[in-house]
Write a protein that binds this DNA or RNA. Structure first.
Length: 207
DNA sequence: TAGGCCATCTGGTCCT
DNA sequence: AGGACCAGATGGCCTA
């Protein structure tokens, strides 16, 4: 019999199981510590990360090992760890709800954790690109930070406007002034003519 | 309090 | 095989 280390449910009623996968403390200065942490992780792969001490506690104990089985075929059959209370009189429905179980061992835990770190790093690079993009779209001085979706939409509109100005060969400021003066009557196909962008145009320094 | 936005985790898929 | 990428789920924070 294989060494079944630990089981956990993906059932809706298994909330207590997921409670251990709590989110990282949002006040944690993640960005500044990530790089040094990544280096630490590379130097000491397999060890628990600092997140374990910040509320991102793993459901697995240190002794758990590889993902050896994904038992979705025979709920309740041979999936209970020794001493893990698998009630013999468990109702059939409850047994069915326990169908999706994972047997988890160390390498899976380590791989999953490493993947989480890579994913966070990837998202950080995406976010830094968004920050860079925010610096290149017109915003109001008093405006709060643009959301990601607003940043993308505004960038699209702004690029379209710049392209039109280039194609027209006109002076940018006079082009904008003319457009605003005419209420964009002649710009029915101007995809940049969004309320967001037009409102910001007055803040652009064209000199 | 509901909805928007976001970070994170996760498993699946694709790529090298 | 391992990493990159992606989308869904979840929960926290903030604001109207």
């Amino acid at each position: 019999m294989e060494d079944i280390g630990l089981l956990f449910d993906f059932d809706q009623d298994g909330s207590t199981d997921f409670a251990f996968w709590g989110q990282m403390d949002q006040n944690f200065h993640f960005q500044t510590q990530l790089e040094s942490f990544l280096m630490d992780c590379q130097a000491a792969s397999g060890q628990l990360s600092p997140w374990s001490t910040f509320g991102c506690q793993s459901v697995f104990s240190d002794s758990q090992l590889t993902l050896t089985d994904l038992d979705v075929q025979s709920p309740g059959l041979g999936v209970c760890a020794e001493g893990e209370g698998c009630p013999a009189d468990e109702p059939l429905e409850a047994a069915k709800r326990r169908a999706r179980r994972l047997v988890v061992h160390q390498p899976y835990k380590v791989q999953r954790h490493a993947a989480n770190i890579r994913e966070r790093k990837r998202m950080l690079s995406i976010n830094s690109a968004f920050e860079e993009l925010r610096c290149h779209v017109p915003t109001f001085p008093y405006e709060k930070r643009l959301s990601k979706i607003d940043t993308l939409r505004l960038a699209i509109a702004y690029i379209a406007l710049l392209r039109e100005i280039l194609m027209s060969g006109a002076d940018p400021k006079s082009y904008i002034d003319e457009c605003m003066k005419n209420g964009y009557k002649n710009q029915s196909d101007a995809i940049w003519n969004t309320s967001d962008l037009t409102a910001r145009l007055s803040w652009i320094k064209w000199d």
